[in-house]
């Protein structure tokens, strides 16, 4: 009986979604907003080869700031919930093969993450992807060496310093540039080179460090309540 009602609700939801599908006729050209972003003079104003990065960091930079704030809040709440851990933990030691392979792989994965967010304005990638890759290196550390103490202080400082630099650069754009989060505070450079696009690579690198530190804090919160027996 209960499932019957749920089927009716979901069928109603499907009927509600059907007109959306029916009226969708496949885009033939860009929307007005997107063609504004893709115009030649606007592309040259920002000078970033990856337009998604330009939208995330400059045009919709305020959204990114709010998003990073939400991530910080969730990390803080999770740390608050999972902090008190009085019972004794007993974690198994890993085999030699796993720890050696992890020692070899961790620096390479962290390098890959840094590469992804430094080249965020030229190739697919950016702060969020790079931060997630760095967090997966941290999870490899946590899995391979479960009894090593996690350096909370380092990640806390890294996170706060990156956040402060992000907000500071954004405000600097408001003071000496055209507006809040303007990227023309640094020289724009040649299109398609590493040192181009003004402040975008700098801001996105700090976003990457901040996201990596926050995701690592969340993962460490969950790891700190584990025990194997």
């Amino acid at each position: 009986m209960r499932n019957f009602f749920i089927i009716i609700i979901i069928a109603a939801f499907g009927i509600m979604l059907y007109p959306l599908f029916d009226s969708f006729s496949g885009n033939e050209e860009l929307s007005e907003l997107a063609s504004f972003y893709a115009q030649k003079e606007n592309v040259e104003k920002v000078n970033s080869a990856n337009l998604v990065t330009a939208v995330v960091v400059t045009y919709r930079g305020l959204d990114t700031m709010g998003e990073v704030t939400i991530l910080f809040l969730t990390a803080a709440i999770i740390a608050f919930f999972l902090k008190k851990q009085s019972d004794v933990r007993s974690l198994r030691e890993n085999t030699e093969i796993f720890t050696t392979a992890a020692k070899l792989l961790i620096p390479i994965i962290i390098m890959l993450g840094v590469y992804i967010f430094i080249n965020g304005h030229l190739s697919p990638g950016g702060g969020f992807q790079g931060g997630a890759v760095i967090a997966s290196a941290i999870i490899l550390i946590l899995l391979a060496f479960p009894n090593k103490p996690f350096n909370h202080k380092f990640f806390g400082y890294m996170e706060s310093v990156s956040g402060l630099v992000f907000v500071g650069l954004a405000a600097l754009g408001g003071l000496i540039g055209l507006g809040y989060l303007d990227n023309a505070i640094l020289p724009l450079g040649t299109f398609g080179e590493l040192m181009s696009a003004g402040a975008i690579p700098v801001i996105y690198s700090f976003v990457g460090l901040k996201v990596g530190a926050e995701l690592s804090n969340i993962l460490n919160g969950f790891q700190s309540v584990q025990s194997d027996s």
Partner: peptide, 30 residues
């Protein structure tokens, strides 16, 4: 570029939505 690329704006929104999704999932699990 105007005639060769897809719309970047929804992609940028989804990019942030995925990261928030992980945060919300982790919060629900906690």
């Amino acid at each position: 570029a105007l005639n060769k690329i897809v719309d970047p704006v929804p992609q940028a929104l989804v990019l942030t939505a995925i990261v928030i999704g992980l945060g919300v999932t982790a919060l629900m699990l906690a």
